[in-house]
Amino acid sequence: MHVIAAVEMSRLGIARGDRSLFQDLDARLEAGQAVALTGANGAGKTSLLRALAGFIRPAEGTVRFTDAAGAEIEAETARRRIHLLGHLDGLRPGARVRDELAFHAAWLGGGAAEAAVERLSLEPLLELEVRKLSAGQRRRVALARLVAAPRPLWLLDEPGAPLDARWRGVLAELIAEHTAAGGLALIATHEPAHGLARTLELSV
């Protein structure tokens, strides 16, 4: 079990089509750290998160994942240790919340679905179809997989956007618990980065 203990980006550059989003990004993310990823609209926050998760090939530079002993983890293996929560919640509109949760927990490798339901107060929503949920409720169902299937690296793309103040608080708690247990988190956000120790700024 190679748990990701550090992510290192060196001279990383990402381009979409002919347009270069950013270049020469050097950054290091270590176990126990939650880092806010900031930058203007279109600066490349989402693209950076997707590149770290292996969906976008960087135009230049490298991303290295290493375990606690400093040994490199292959990108394909690292992908199985990553949670990527983007703008889309990854929930099928026609499916019941209960079925989606069960699938996510099994597919992403966790057995803690019940703990996740309790943590995010999803009990009253379980029998509903996803299409009937509000945006905030859908996001809570999506966040449940972070709890249900423990993975060391969280890549979150504006996770709090559809949430109300109470659930943003819970989200901050989840992130704090995750890092306290040795996890890593990179969180794209436009909000003042409360509770996040460091900030990684993408400038255009």
Binding site: A53, G54, F55, R79, R80, I82, H83, L84, G86, H87, L88, D89, G90, L91, R92, P93, H104, W107, L108, G109
Partner: peptide, 11 residues
Amino acid sequence: DGSLDLLSLGP
């Protein structure tokens, strides 16, 4: 709906 990303990050 974004589930294709999830399917790519599975076992």
